[in-house]
Nucleic acid binder design. Structure first.
Length: 479
RNA sequence: GCCCUGGUAGUGUAGUGGCCCAUCAUGCGGCCCUGUCGAGGCCGCGACUCGGGUUCAAAUCCCGGCCGGGGCGCCA
């Protein structure tokens, strides 16, 4: 009954076309294709795969009617699916009165075409479809809220109000194809390094760093919050003996910031590892994670990066580590001045990014040994033995923007308790967390990485919202 | 939260006191065209964010509301 059978051979997929008994070797599973199983109920194929058919062969394709070029006696329908834009040819004297109906289908309607492949060098795809039937599965209203292929761009607000339409643009789709691959790369790395993927609660009783940045929720009448970080749970899992874990999950920040690199809901990529000797172990793991996932995207997503016109340059090892105090000196040498306290602020980050790029030809560097008073809310940060005014905490900077924050955690119960008391935190509020530290806690550390920032910097996007399907910020709650 | 900045047809814009019953592009509608691919040609449609104020006169100036964009603090 089915028109396709599928056999897996190595990483390639071979389909046998039953009508012809011919083998079609699909390029790979890199991105577009999904033929790992034989879905006999899915007869429609991607336009990219029509290329693999013989000249004159019947096929069924479908997509969005991008535009109609009506020349009078002949018309061309440009139809877009996820893999490309193909052309359907309508000859008036051959199809008669339905010609007028077909050329008047509104743009962006979904149409389903059965027809014959005809090879030609007059289209980008190298073929066109001579239809035997065309049906409209979903009519599009007129006018469109924004044009998918119009020569004018829409404002961000218009675009995000009509995100479904915005995402029909090829270059928007590409971002999410890269994002998907980057996550594959991340998971590939962690799997190979023996990390366990976990999920921790997102509805919590208390945050990691006080209550100021938390969204309140009503939890069966009790006061609760959306988690702004999995921090405390990750540490508890170190106490539970999981040793190496990672989590890819949303984090919520009710900060009232409105910038191109902040959103209220983002995907936090966290890992935590036990039995480290120092924060250097964490930094090195971080650098290899970033490198591996970038290389993965470069290999698997070459066509996407090419289409986006982006060159990806992963970090080389070792990634330079610059203590915070030295960062200040460098910035002073570069002529930076401060009104208040000397620290690496947004301007400083950008300057240091340029400095490292010019002097060491790298997009990456760590800022290490963050002063304790700059991490004042981070009660769980381990401080340097020789100088408690410094922490073991670091940031990883990518193209002049903070990408990662992490360090070695304080695993000694009495020290942790003392650091909490410095901040006037009530240990009773953290009892379920603190308890973990009283029954054998190994030395450990970890990081949090902003996934969207990673993609933003990777693809040189102006605004972090471009990396999120439906972004949440201080004013946007829908769609 | 602070600072800067904007809101004109479906979309993107021009217009900074009278020359504006508002420019251009795109879109949409109609007509012509059998190889278009930024299709082309001709004709048409469609807008000043809301409320107050100043003025003989407001898209334009002032105040407020609503909704954006950018920067900073902060952060992933």
């Amino acid at each position: 009954m089915s028109s396709f059978y599928v056999i897996l051979v190595l990483s390639h997929v071979i389909t046998i076309h039953q009508k012809t008994g011919r083998f079609i070797i699909l390029d790979s599973l890199k991105g577009f294709y999904r033929y790992a199983f034989n879905w006999e109920f899915m007869k429609r194929i991607y336009s990219e795969d029509v290329k693999l058919l013989e000249d004159g062969e019947q096929c069924r394709v479908a997509g969005w009617l991008q535009e109609v070029r009506n020349l009078g006696g002949i018309a061309f329908l440009k139809v877009r699916d996820r893999t490309g834009v193909f052309q359907v040819v309508l000859v008036k004297k051959e199809i008669g009165e339905s010609f007028d109906d077909l050329v008047n289908i509104p743009r962006e309607s979904v149409i389903d075409i059965e027809g014959r492949k005809q090879e030609t060098d007059q289209t980008d795809m190298g073929f066109e479809i001579l239809p035997s039937s065309v049906s409209v599965s979903g009519y599009a209203e007129k006018p469109l809220p924004l044009g998918v292929v119009d020569k004018v761009d829409a404002d961000m607000d218009t675009r995000f109000d009509n995100r479904f339409m915005d995402l029909r643009k090829k270059e928007k789709l590409l971002i999410f194809q890269v994002r998907s691959l980057l996550l594959d790369g991340v998971r590939d790395f962690f799997r190979k390094e023996g990390f366990i993927e976990v999920n921790t609660p997102k509805v919590v009783a208390a945050g990691a760093e006080g209550g100021a940045t938390l969204f309140k929720v009503d939890y069966y009448g009790k006061k609760a919050y959306l988690a702004q970080s999995p921090q405390l749970f990750k540490q508890m899992l170190m106490g539970a003996g999981l040793e190496r874990i990672y989590e890819i999950a949303p984090a919520y920040r009710a900060e009232d910031f409105d910038t191109v690199r902040h959103t209220s809901e983002f995907i936090s990529l966290d890992f935590e590892m036990s039995y480290i000797d120092s924060s250097n172990d964490v930094m090195n793991m971080t650098a290899y994670l970033v490198e591996h996932s970038m290389r993965y995207v470069m290999e698997e997503g070459e066509r996407f990066l090419e289409a986006l016109g982006v060159e990806v340059v992963p970090p080389e090892h070792p990634v330079r580590k610059i203590p915070h105090s030295q960062c200040i000196e460098i910035l002073e040498d570069m002529g930076k001045t401060w009104e208040d306290e000397k620290s690496v602020d947004t301007q400083g980050e950008k300057m240091l990014g340029r400095y490292v790029k010019e002097n060491y030809d790298s997009d990456f560097f760590f800022i290490t040994e963050f002063p304790t008073h700059l991490k004042k809310n981070t009660f769980y940060a381990m401080r340097k033995d020789y100088d408690p005014s410094l922490t073991t905490y670091f940031d990883l900077e990518y193209k002049g923007q903070e990408l990662v924050s992490g360090g070695q955690r304080e695993h000694r119960y009495d020290v942790l308790l003392a650091q909490m008391k410095e901040l006037d935190l009530d240990p009773n509020d953290f009892e379920s967390y603190l308890r973990t530290f009283r029954y054998g806690m190994p030395p450990h550390g970890g990081i949090g990485l902003g996934l969207e920032r990673f993609i933003q910097q990777l693809l040189d996007l102006d605004n972090i919202r471009e990396t999120i399907l439906f972004p949440r910020d201080t004013s946007r709650l829908e769609p």
